[in-house]
Every structure is written in structure tokens, then in C-alpha cells.
Amino acid sequence: MTRCLRRIAPLALALCHLAAATPAAAQESAAAEALFDRGLADMEAGKYETGCASIAESHRIEPKPGALFTLAICESRWGRVASAFTRFGDYLALYEQMTPDQKSRQGERAKVARKERDRLGPLVPELSLSLPPGAPAGTVVKRDGRAVDGALLGKGVPVEPGEHVVSTQAPGGPVWETRIQLAEGEKKRVALQVNGASTAAPSGGISGRRTAAFVAGGVGVAGLVLGGVTGALTLGKKSVVEEHCGSAIGVSDETACDQTGIDAAESASTTGLVSTIGFGLGLAGLGAAAVLFLTEPKQGEEAAAATSRRIRARVLAAGPDGVVIGARGAW
């Protein structure tokens, strides 16, 4: 008796699990059927949004070929040509895996699915999205609130007709957003923007080298202005010195001056030094700006220039007698 009980115990346990699972499965099947009936009624009444949603949920709970086919019909009537085209394709793929007996129970559904898929194909719009050159790594592209797989960028993706909201966001940057309208069968390519991204030269931005050239040029102009102003002051002091030194004040020593001449000579010495330095800086700044402009890589050559040659403009020497500017680099 004990040996017999041991043999039937596993079978009894399995039957218990099956008995417990059967009510739950029956409940899910009943829920799926109720959702399908409700969705079918809404679809026939022209309430496609709620009807298709109910049928889709019914198919999710209990996947059946009939529910999938009806969902494709609902989405087709709703105007969601991309979804309907995909659903019909899914149904036909499932149909090809059926046994002859199962296929016979599907009636004319396969024939209708093929006909509808052929009709819908030319109506499905395609949208191709691409990021600009130089977009930061990790930039997120979203279409209608959902992230777009990076592998799909630059490729035509089937979408529904109508308006689509597309956005980009670089890591830590602001969101850029645009709205795109697509008609049935339209194929559109859209070059996206990325706010706060360092893009390539075609974006119209000013390169760092050109910015440095502008700064150097500004310093050069300021230096020349300073040199000119202080030079004019020095010339003015020189005439004062001539009037208050040497024979002008009745002494034979031309280096002897009265107090006015001494003050003018000291002031002229200071302004003369400032003028010399100003002219030197001015020439150095303008020379550096010229070198930076002349050695700036052209568009499309910047990447090659970064690896094949390096040029640095610099002031080699500066002093009261002038400046020396040049360029150092390697090819």
C-alpha cells in the first residue's frame, strides 16, 4: 500500500497544480473574450481608438490568429496604415506555420490579409532621421516620446501618416524639438539639430583658431592705438624739453634744464617707453592674427590637419626695439 502511494503521489501533486491553474486560465480566457467582443463592437461603431485598444489587449492576454487578423482590420479602418501593414504581415507569417487543418479553419482571412497588405504597402510613410556631424556621443533622439534606436538613424522607418514630434538632447544639454508632418506614402529625410553640441564646420560656428585670431587682432589694434597716443604725447614733451634746456634757458650745457624741462624729460621717457611697447604689442598681435588666419584648415580638412600637421603661431621676442613673430609646427 505504501509503495502504491509513493507511485501516485507525484501524479496527484501535478493534478493539484493543474486544478489550481485551470480556474486562472479560464478567467484570463474569459477576460480576453470579453475584451475582444467589446473591441469588435466599438470597431463596428466606428470607435476605432477604443476598439483597437481592446482587441490588442485581448490578443496580448490570449494570442489567437483571429484576434490578430481583426486587430489588423481595425487599425486599417482607423487609418493607422503602418501598424495595419505590420499586423497583416504578422498574421500571414503565423498562417504559414499552421497545419492544413488549421489553415482551413481560417477561411478567407489569408487571402484578405495578402490583398490588404499589398494595398497598404504604398501608403505607408517612411521617415529617416539623422544627427548632424559632430553630435556628442550619447545624444538621445526621440520620436513621439520614444527613444529611437541608434541603428535606425539614417534609415527609412515606417511610421503613421500625420504629425510626429521629434526631439534631440545631448548629455546635460537642452532639448531641441521639431514637428514633422507626413502624408500617406510620403518619404522624408530630416537632418536634426542638437542644442549645445559642438558640430562640424558646416554648422556655421566659429572655430577656436579663428576666435584666437580675432582676439589677437583686437590686442594688436589696441596696442597700435596705445603706441600712437603715447607717441604723440612724447613728441609734445620733446618740444617742452627743447624750450627749457640748454641754450633756450641761457646755459651752455645742453643737458642742463630747469624744473619744467626736467619734468618734461622724465614724462617723455615714460611715454616713449609705453609707446614702444604699445607698437610692439600691436605688431605682434596683428602678425599672430595673420598667421592664425593663414594656417587655419579648410572645411573638411580639419580632422586630417589635426593628425598630419601642427602649427602654432607665437611671439618669439618682444622689447623696446621691436618684436619677432613666427610659427612653429610639424608636418
Rank of each mutant, 00 (worst) to 15 (best):
L226T: 10
F88H: 12
T99N: 10
D118H: 11
K115M: 09
G217Q: 01
L233I: 11
T139R: 05
L192M: 10
C74A: 12
S130G: 07
G220P: 01
K103N: 07
G173P: 06
C257T: 02
E184A: 15
L281H: 13
G329T: 04
A113M: 00
L68S: 09
K103F: 03
G227D: 06
G196Q: 06
L233E: 14
A67W: 00
K187N: 11
A303V: 10
A45K: 14
Q97E: 13
P320E: 14
T139C: 01
S203N: 12
K238R: 13
P122R: 09
I249P: 06
L233A: 15
A288F: 01
S83C: 00
T307L: 02
L15D: 01
V324L: 12
L182T: 01
R210M: 13
V240C: 10
E186Q: 15
P171V: 03
Q299H: 06
W176F: 12
G162R: 06
S128T: 02
E116T: 06
V157Q: 14
F36C: 04
G282S: 07
S308I: 03
Y91R: 05
I8H: 05
A19V: 04
A137I: 04
P171F: 00
K238H: 10
T276D: 13
P174A: 15
G250T: 05
A45H: 12
T2M: 06
V315H: 05
G185P: 08
R105W: 11
A284T: 08
K142Q: 15
G228H: 07
D118V: 12
A26W: 08
V240H: 02
T139H: 05
C52Y: 08
L192C: 05
E75H: 13
Q169G: 09
R310E: 09
E296T: 13
C52N: 07
A135I: 03
S267H: 03
A268D: 01
D149F: 02
K155M: 11
I8G: 05
L120D: 01
G326M: 02
A317E: 14
A183E: 12
A30M: 05
G278Q: 07
A25Q: 14
W331S: 14
T260D: 11
A216V: 01
Q181G: 12
P174F: 07
A31S: 07
V291D: 08
A327G: 07
F36G: 01
L40G: 06
R119E: 09
T255I: 00
A14L: 15
I180H: 13
G145N: 04
G79E: 00
R146A: 15
A45Y: 07
A290I: 00
R146I: 08
V166L: 02
G79Y: 03
F69C: 07
W78Q: 14
A147L: 03
S239F: 03
K188T: 09
S198T: 14
Q97T: 13
E296G: 04
A135F: 01
D42V: 04
P122Y: 06
V221L: 15
C52F: 04
S54M: 08
A53F: 03
A306F: 08
V274Y: 11
G322I: 10
G287K: 04
M98N: 04
A197M: 05
G329W: 02
L68W: 03
L5K: 08
V175I: 13
S104R: 15
C52M: 08
V219N: 06
S198Y: 08
V215E: 10
G89S: 04
L233K: 15
E33D: 12
